[in-house]
Design a protein around this nucleic acid. Structure first.
Lengths: 245, 245
DNA sequence: CGTCGAGTTGACATAATTCAAGTAAGGTGG
DNA sequence: CCACCTTACTTGAATTATGTCAACTCGACG
């Protein structure tokens, strides 16, 4: 029953039944391969598709009228992406691959079956989306109320935590992937200032850099300096309906 | 079948059946009255309750370590609030009344019944929460990539649109309610700078102020200047399961 | 009548941006 | 294998947006 990294991720929170796994597997029947830099879809596209990210990293972002870009969220394997047009017919955000990537597109009508026949999965989806919401509010507080250095630090911490969540090895080193311009677009800064803040973090002994990889040297101090809250507590599944089948 | 402003709001999107209305009414059996300034719950409270806001305005916010505050969202009648701890046991955000308010608290276990017996309502809840998510990403772009003046303008526009959505009269004047300090905490600015930006907007003829009320004079220009996107399009309900009963 | 919270204003300080010029690394065509 | 591009990163100097501090007004309220 491997193959579905979405099921694998959801299985962190509840023990999926065979029937539930099958239902999830049906969302991942098709595959689409993307090369780094390739755009999966653009703002305002009329899109009925939602995607499960299987391999690689993808970012969602919007452009403002003046040409500036805001990166809304980084997506990792196991994430449900493009979910915002569960609500809307037109995509409110663009999706572009940060690395070579594989996604599984499915039509949003597939959710209908899920909600009808697998209430526990529906509840789980809902809970996961609420957790994503909290993650967004954390970023809102970061952009609204913390310094440039703290924003960059918080982004790095978020990345390492999410990487650890996927692979269980407790590493402190990871491939940055993002350019400094992209880090700026995620944190609301200019590339130049991101550069300065990264070296400041290095000078203060909080991180190290080698080629394209970053090591979190003093995670405790960095977390404090960046006002970072770790939200990787278990989901509260107590209210979920029983599984069917 | 009045009384439930939650049902009333959801009825904007689908025609609720009698059975569905009854299920929703069950979420609003209890009432709790709050006075302006009163806190409904605090960050880190162990909270099993979720609320439907019936009257008045409420804000959700977090405090950072340095004592600064970020207002995450303004809530209006018909909103589901405290929904973030559908995912978590401990509340990630505080809730405080901006005006005298009435909320209907219900235990999150009540959602279980909803997901089991009313898949269409569950789908609707999910879609509404995705729309909220998009609203949060709009704010993220506002804080990350627009000027102080634009952020204040966008907040005012968001308020007027949400007020219009509740009451159908197409007014351009509303009671601001928020202090300039609160506007600052919502937009990531200081109270002093909010003051300057508001008067700049007045001088440019975009808004007017009288006592505590604000009038949007030139909505088109203000929307452009604030990079504001109106998301009050209809929800896409095409994928919803059929209603039961 | 005095106090308090909110709004207003000016002078000054600071964080972040802009502009400009450079370096380093990787990829490509000859 | 070299010469040439291109893209990302780096750095300094000047500029601008926003924050800080402090003083004052005004209206509400007890």
């Amino acid at each position: 029953m491997s193959g579905s990294c979405f099921a694998e991720r959801l299985n962190h929170f509840v023990n999926l039944t065979t029937v539930e796994r099958e239902a999830l597997a049906r969302l991942e029947e098709r595959e689409r391969h993307l090369r780094r830099g390739q755009t999966l879809r653009r703002e305002n596209d009329d899109a009925d598709e939602i995607y499960i990210l299987r391999h690689g990293w993808i970012m969602s972002f919007v452009f403002l009228d003046d040409g500036s870009r805001q990166i809304l969220r980084l997506h990792f394997p196991g994430d449900l992406i493009g979910s915002s047009n569960i609500a809307y017919r037109d995509a409110p955000e663009s999706l572009t691959a940060l690395t070579d990537a594989v996604v599984c597109p499915f039509d949003k009508s597939a959710l209908k079956v899920l909600f009808e026949q697998h209430p526990r999965l529906a509840a789980l989806l809902f809970a996961v989306s609420q957790a994503e919401r909290v993650s967004l509010t954390d970023r809102l507080a970061s952009l609204g109320r913390t310094s440039a250095k703290a924003r960059v630090g918080a982004l790095l911490l978020d990345m390492i935590h999410r990487i650890r969540f996927m692979k269980k090895d407790v590493t402190s080193t990871f491939d940055l992937i993002l350019t400094q311009e992209e880090i700026g677009d995620a944190t609301g800064l200019t590339a130049v200032h991101v550069n300065r803040m990264m070296r400041a973090l290095v000078e203060e002994g909080l991180i190290e850099r080698r080629n394209g990889s970053v090591t979190i040297v003093d995670e405790r101090a960095l977390s404090r300096a960046s006002a970072y809250t770790n939200r990787f507590a278990a989901l509260d599944t107590s209210w979920f309906p029983a599984s069917r089948g």
